[in-house]
Write a protein that binds this DNA or RNA. Structure first.
Lengths: 246, 246
DNA sequence: CGCCAAGTTGACAAGTCTCAATGTAAGTGG
DNA sequence: CCACTTACATTGAGACTTGTCAACTTGGCG
């Protein structure tokens, strides 16, 4: 958008929301607000760095804050009564967390890599919402978007084979990464552990790994590193994602 | 039940939200509102009957109305690009539909049996929300509750065996039915087709049917009719729901 | 450089899907 | 009111995907 990529990425382009300037006001949620409202929100936001693997939110804890991820990646999960956890989603820069949680958080959140987030106490949020209706609307859209994501996930988990799930997820991540303004030619950044990805897709780790290997053999993807995946043939992936068999 | 199947429809306790008076203002969403607000909402609500199998909402259509189910049952589903549909949920009396959909509906809705619903145009809703903050809050809670349901469904679809899924779902329906004020001893009312239930649980119909048969053989449930299920041993079902194996 | 966590791959068993036949309840028309 | 028709549910046999267990390889990090 703003042609001036003033901020030379110190290292990894993913660290700074995709080559985009780090300025708070350039994140999508805030971009959609009117100037006065945006200024008020930016002023209220508290920036905070976090370490790799840091626990950011605990399921069941009082949901008194709203978060926006500025840099890094976060894994969301629910704990089942006894069995191991179920990963319900991932957050990337620009994503909002906590809007869809009423009094208590519905899931836990852990940092995949170190990064930064901006937080806003809900009390303050309510006040701002009274003054600026478009903020309320923006948050409402954030909630419905979370809901839509969960619904799509139901589709993945409810009626897809392993290959379909992986193909669908890769395209989903690709779409999100491009929405963050990343170069479409750049490889996907998937810093989470394979285990988390497997849980997210309702698969066991070996099954996920095998599926990846298969896609690599067939030339649909390539993996420059453990945390990066290049989509070589989006069309084939899209076909695989929708068409049921083979 | 009674030896004489007095099949008089009006006497079906499920038809009227569980033996509860049919008055609009007695439904949970409205009960939570302050008197003046409730009165205003009740006045704005439009009651409407619908037939069995009637299409009530189409995925992708403009979401200009909010619905509350008064009587009957509704199945929600998403259509996959080519393969058959995925059922994402069921609505029973008192449930709200449409709050979590922003500009367009995220799913379609079809009547399982005939019933009644109350609707409210979103435009009117916005006006009321401005006048009555607690209405806005009630709707917000409705959305987060929808979201929580979808999240729980992720748990079911992502990491459970067929037996666990069925046991979990039965207990879930049981909880909801009791929340509607139904007698805990009364059998579960499950008027949807087995096919829909199977899709909801991410299973094929024969697998669901087999699982039901197994539970019946083991004495955990009994099925007085196709649309009714009695939970004979909730404790065992709860154990099966959580404990992974066997 | 070596260790340990994480990822990959193999062999086998188990659970679920597919296809198909049978049984049953509901709905329709004579 | 009964026979007929249709839709839905149940059950069976076999194939196949996926899960499980375990060995092996890789790669990050001290």
């Amino acid at each position: 958008m703003s042609g001036t990529k003033s901020e030379t990425p110190p290292s990894n382009p993913h660290r700074s929301a995709g080559g985009r300037p780090d300025k708070l006001s350039d994140f999508p949620l805030l971009r959609s607000l009117q100037d006065r409202c945006r200024a008020a929100v930016v002023k209220a936001l508290q920036e905070r760095p976090f370490d790799k693997h840091a626990l950011l939110v605990s399921e069941g804890a009082e949901a008194d804050e709203l978060f926006m991820l500025l840099e890094g990646a976060i894994v969301l999960w629910k704990t089942r009564p006894d069995r191991h956890a179920q990963v319900t989603g991932f957050l990337f820069p620009g994503d909002v967390m906590g809007a869809a949680n009423d009094s208590r958080y519905l899931y836990s959140a852990r940092a995949v890599v170190r990064g930064r987030l901006a937080s806003l106490p809900k009390r303050q949020l309510a006040d701002l919402g009274d003054s600026y209706p478009d903020l309320r609307r923006a948050l409402y859209r954030s909630v419905t978007s979370d809901f839509a994501l969960a619904q799509d996930q139901l589709l993945i988990l409810g009626a897809m084979s392993a290959k379909e799930r992986v193909a669908t997820a890769l395209l989903q991540f690709d779409r999100r990464q491009r929405a963050r303004g990343m170069d479409p030619a750049a490889p996907l950044w998937l810093p989470m552990r394979r285990m988390d990805l497997a849980s997210y897709l309702g698969l066991e780790l070996p099954t996920l790994s095998r599926t990846f290997s298969r896609l690599r053999q067939d030339g649909l993807i390539s993996c420059p590193s453990t945390t990066e995946v290049s989509l070589r043939d989006r069309a084939a992936l899209a076909r695989m994602s929708c068409e049921a068999l083979e």
